[in-house]
């Protein structure tokens, strides 16, 4: 079952295991420059507020009600990342594993393929938690992603429109499948009391002429700047995942300019620019997991034009304040250290 709790989606499968719970947060962040450089991971600036679409039934497009799910506000050219939070099973010191599918406009953000039910291995069309702690964008090359950036659906920028030529779905789609319980118990046997492993701590103004009564407030996600992020290969067998009990959710992306008209609540203040954030000496992040291999990028996603490339083609200025920055304050997280091994930092 899926619940909306404290601005996050909680997927739980009590019929599989009482603690089989995955929480997915949608983190606000700064938009990395969309230029030729490759950037480290930007920070989390807090979770986007979320609502059930059913609670706004009088004010949202009928298609949103038909699809069900939840909604969150994004400004045009605002970025987001997904935070996957798992629960450690106490007697095994191991979070319950999940396979997670992420699509935007019903195009898979990992494989670039159209949405289908279930999981596929070649090419892999899912992520695995807890190994994959975050997802910041489209997997365009091995170890490289392009940041999720919101653009009005219908403007031609979204991955969906670039791949299918249509602005039909928008939003973000999720499906989660837990590992089968017998597989989990076999792969992760009960442990005695051990030391705990190191915890993984871990605006632009939209078109003001938009009339929300007449026009859809839909946003779609488009590929932005390049970022270092590995999407890890599934180390388990495809049959280890319990595809009979998956949960899926449609996350509607609502233009922040009409969020208040729909919900009566103010959207969050726009995120700072990458330049002002970096000039303030605030940290950027890198994450390594030496124990895992990364999936290749999806050819269809690697061919997508970034928002900046496309706006140049169109003669638009879709991304003001897109100045190149040089992150100096870099915090490195490295997974796969032996217990007690001291983590090397940046000197």
């Amino acid at each position: 079952m899926i619940e909306l709790e404290r601005d996050a989606l909680t997927f739980s499968f009590p019929e599989v295991h009482p603690q089989a719970t995955l929480r997915i947060e949608f983190q606000r962040t700064l938009r990395i420059p969309d230029d030729d450089k490759t950037y480290p991971l930007p920070p989390g600036l807090g979770a986007f507020p979320m609502r059930h679409v059913d609670d706004q039934a009088a004010n949202v497009p009928s298609q949103w009600l038909q699809r069900g799910g939840v909604m969150l506000p994004m400004y045009q050219s605002e970025a987001m990342w997904l935070n996957f939070i798992t629960t450690t099973i106490q007697d095994r010191w191991q979070p319950y594993p999940f396979a997670i599918k992420v699509a935007t406009g019903k195009q898979c953000a990992v494989s670039g393929e159209a949405w289908t039910d279930g999981l596929r291995r070649k090419p892999q069309n899912y992520l695995i938690a807890p190994k994959q702690p975050w997802l910041d964008g489209y997997v365009v090359e091995k170890g490289l992603i392009r940041q999720f950036v919101a653009m009005p659906l219908g403007a031609g920028y979204s991955a969906e429109e670039q791949i299918t030529g249509k602005a039909e779905h928008g939003g973000l789609q999720l499906a989660v499948y837990p590992m089968k319980r017998d597989v989990f118990e076999r792969r992760f046997p009960k442990l005695g009391r051990m030391e705990l492993s190191r915890s993984e701590a871990f605006m632009e103004t939209a078109d003001m002429t938009l009339n929300f009564c007449m026009a859809a407030p839909d946003m779609g996600l488009a590929p932005g700047g390049r970022m270092r992020q590995e999407i890890f290969d599934d180390p388990y067998d495809l049959d280890d995942w319990n595809m009979d009990v998956g949960g899926r959710c449609f996350v509607h992306l609502c233009n922040s300019m009409v969020w208040q008209a729909i919900t009566g609540a103010m959207p969050p203040h726009p995120a700072p620019t990458a330049k002002s954030y970096t000039d303030a000496g605030l940290p950027w992040f890198d994450y390594y997991d030496d124990s895992a291999t990364a999936v290749e990028g999806a050819p269809v996603l690697s061919k997508l034009k970034s928002v900046n490339q496309m706006s140049s083609d169109k003669g638009d200025v879709a991304l003001p304040e897109n100045e190149t920055v040089t992150p100096d304050n870099l915090v490195v997280f490295r997974k796969g250290l032996k217990r007690g091994q001291v983590r090397e930092g940046v000197f």
Binding site: H52, Q66, R67, G69, F250
Partner: peptide, 12 residues
């Protein structure tokens, strides 16, 4: 305590 409000899935 298990009585919760689920997120409704619709027709995509």
């Amino acid at each position: 305590l298990r009585l919760v409000r689920e997120v409704r899935d619709g027709d995509w």
